[in-house]
């Protein structure tokens, strides 16, 4: 995706380096400015601007009633957001960390995900739940979980995760505008990743639910999302030396799942590896591998492989590099894709 080159009134815009965190903050700001029903609530989101500073400046610009420091209780925050949405507001909830979203699971599973269905379409809940997720930032216990599999397994939720600065802005805007609840997973180790970006004229984004080919290739497809995209892009560059030209698909949204883009890519390349840092067992990779096999069996030259986090509780920070899928593990998996006719 390219960055738009002109402002709304036609002046050229110079894109400057911006972080994903800045793009996310800007998306919240622009959503709030455009739609007075958008309310941000969470722990420390007001005066402090959030522990990752994503909501910095919102309380100052829009007031405490639009960007609210709530009491410290995740079920209460999300439950209150349900009631606010019932009354016509469009709440954006910040969960402070992946593992601290768990107290809100009952509200999420039993109400947020189901309310549209329970009421025969009469009362959809346009709630966005922002969750910083994943490891790689040296966090101690309970600060690095990859919780996407739980959300994916819950019908009624959209599960969206950006991997680039452009997408962080565009997908968050789309998520807030969506009339369905969205769990918006923010890869926290990419918060400080930078790209040239112009807040005055951010790139238009496709509706949520569309994957994108980040790097075209012919030999095999790496399917990934969020924090593992940079790993896959790096692996694809390194693979050239081995003679492999890898295609990289960034899912962007786990639900809805873009079968079309994924299957089209695998039919072209005939080989696929799914890469994510969440545990492999019962993780997204299994579902994705099954979907590929169901759709592309006769195009496959090798079984679909997974490179995932180990099936362990997230390790302590000094050991996390052994857990997180890195370039070498991705390349090892690619090497196992039965390149020899007789292997």
């Amino acid at each position: 995706m390219t960055t738009a080159a002109v402002t709304a009134d036609g002046r050229p815009v110079k894109a400057k380096p911006a972080t994903m965190a800045q793009a996310l903050g800007r998306a919240l700001r622009d959503s709030m400015a455009e739609d007075p029903t958008v309310h941000v609530l969470g722990e420390d989101v007001g005066t402090l601007g959030g522990v990752f500073r994503i909501t910095d400046g919102l309380a100052k610009e829009f007031g405490d009633d639009r960007c609210t420091d709530t009491p410290l209780a995740e079920a209460g925050i999300l439950g209150a957001a349900v009631g606010m949405a019932m009354y016509g507001l469009r709440p954006v909830v910040e969960m402070q960390f992946d593992a601290f979203a768990y107290p809100a699971f009952e509200q999420l599973m039993s109400h947020v995900a189901k309310m549209r269905n329970r009421t025969g379409g009469a009362m959809p809940l346009p709630i966005t739940v922002r969750v910083p997720y994943g490891g790689g930032i040296g966090g101690v216990e309970h600060h690095s979980d990859s919780s996407e599999a739980y959300y994916m397994a819950t019908p009624g939720l959209h599960v969206v995760t950006p991997a680039t600065v452009d997408d962080a802005y565009g997908l968050l805007r789309e998520s807030i505008a969506s009339d369905d609840p969205v769990v918006f997973l923010e890869p926290k180790r990419l918060y400080w990743s930078k790209a040239d970006w112009s807040p005055e004229a951010p790139a238009a984004v496709e509706p949520i639910g569309r994957a994108v080919v980040r790097r075209p290739g012919r030999s095999a497809t790496l399917i990934t999302y969020g924090p593992s995209l940079p790993v896959c892009m790096e692996a694809a560059e390194a693979a050239l030396a081995e003679g492999w030209d890898l295609e990289v698909v960034d899912l962007r949204s786990l639900v809805p799942f873009d079968d079309e883009t994924v299957a089209a890519s695998v039919r072209r390349t005939g080989r696929a590896v799914v890469v994510h840092e969440s545990p492999g067992f019962g993780g997204p990779g299994g579902e994705i591998a099954a979907r590929i096999t169901e759709r592309c069996f006769h195009h496959l030259e090798a079984p679909v492989l997974r490179v995932a986090g180990f099936d362990i509780p997230y390790p302590p920070p000094m050991l996390e590099r052994h857990h997180l899928p890195g370039v070498d593990r991705v390349l090892d998996a690619v090497a196992r894709l039965q390149w020899e006719a007789d292997s």
């Binding site: 209460g76 439950g79 209150a80 957001a81 009631g83 019932m86 009354y87 016509g88 039993s110």
Partner: peptide, 20 residues
């Protein structure tokens, strides 16, 4: 509000709605 079976989960909804 819809009749609520998961116990007490309707209470924060009432708070959010009244607050809104």
């Amino acid at each position: 509000a819809p009749l609520c079976t998961p116990l007490a989960t309707q209470l924060p909804h009432a708070v959010g709605l009244a607050h809104a």
